[in-house]
Design a protein around this nucleic acid. Structure first.
Lengths: 210, 210
DNA sequence: GACCTATCTGACTGACCGTCAGATTTTTGT
DNA sequence: ACAAAAATCTGACGGTCAGTCAGATAGGTC
């Protein structure tokens, strides 16, 4: 029964409690999106579901624990993206495949950006649980990307001064950050489509060397 | 007298107060680095300089205002980097110039990473003051980068599907993120030098098309 | 030394965190 | 159908921090 849902103190909980916990998680995600992590308060989360702070602490030891769970859920949604990153992008279809990945990544990002931002902040500030989750999520993508880079380096299309894993990290960074910058860049005339095209082109170039 | 130092209520302050305000800013930067923005408390800042919370509020309306000031100071340190980004990187010296920029950027990042992270978070969460500061800082770099990309596109070394400004944003994103990931990547075997080389190679490639 | 002004802080209010004992709802047993 | 047991929920509380303000203290001027 390793996938039983647990309360904060570790005991297995029943159907009603699972539903309450779920509503708490959803409210947390909602408020994280609306207000950001800095203004996220337990009172607000519980008020949102018409409950009281004490209820929250039945299921989570603190807000971090709830956000961590949301981050794990986001990781699940990231897994399908890996199938879009197989070595063998060629001159014919490679750019189109890059577009597919970028599109899928955009949807993923739009859905989870608030949680992912929170996860990254916590990870960068040294929280080891969030580091672990971020690392796990990034490894999924980065291993696939690194394999593509390695292929390009072996075929001499990419310079061997590129460390595959670091390049993969750079690609993930570009994706995450361009999407995060998006609202700001829109104001400067770079619309969603320019971002999409540029990102796909950069990916295609950095990963294949074509 | 536009560069007089002001208290929270806008009045001009004297030498002693300037010194106190400075100590508050330094303590804020220190605690931001040590504990991160989520655990940054005014009590701690004032305790650190042997003072009381009331003193803090003499000079800043809230913690954000102090962080914003630190972010503006960081921007000043970023300005010299622009001179390292002039169009004309060629096959002979271009990669070396990219290395110079990466090195300078690494120093800049190491000095200000906690403040820059806080700035970016606030900006991404929609705070317009922090957006303005981040935009100003990024524009410095991005305009220079975009000019280089435009040169590469005009010379047909880069595909015209690249939007110069978006590409510039991607490059900044790579720099910021790779440095932020650094401690984590180190554990996976990519050392500082691999990051440095990879970043320089990617920059050189993305900016010049060589 | 008396006065004036700039600077600092003790003490307070209000809000949130996290806990716990007890109230309420659901399930179980007969 | 009812009572007892278990699961779930919450009111109320102690502690901490944000932010305010009136008054204390320090520094300068004559």
């Amino acid at each position: 029964m390793t996938d039983d849902v647990l309360a904060a103190d570790g005991r297995v909980i029943g159907a009603r409690a699972i539903a309450t916990r779920r509503r708490l998680l959803d409210a947390t995600a909602k408020l994280l999106t609306e207000q950001g992590i800095l203004d996220l308060r337990v009172v607000d989360i519980t008020r949102d579901i018409g409950s009281s702070p004490a209820t929250f602490y039945q299921y989570f030891n603190d807000v971090d624990e709830a956000i961590l769970e949301l981050a794990k859920e986001a990781t699940e949604d990231e897994k399908p993206l890996v199938s879009l990153l197989q070595p063998g992008w060629n001159k014919k279809t490679g750019l189109e495949q890059a577009h597919h990945f970028v599109d899928a990544y955009m949807v993923f990002w739009d859905t989870h950006h608030a949680v992912l931002r929170a996860r990254n902040l916590k990870a960068e500030e040294g929280n080891r649980h969030f580091r672990a989750v971020r690392t796990e999520a990034n490894l999924l993508i980065m291993n696939a990307l690194a394999a593509m880079v390695t292929e390009g380096v072996n075929a001499k299309r990419l310079p061997d001064s590129l460390d595959p894993f670091t390049t993969a990290a750079a690609v993930v960074a570009m994706c995450e950050r361009l999407l995060a910058f998006q609202p700001e860049m829109a104001k400067r005339g770079s619309d969603k489509n320019a971002i999409r095209n540029t990102l796909a082109t950069l990916l295609y170039g950095a990963l294949t060397g074509h």
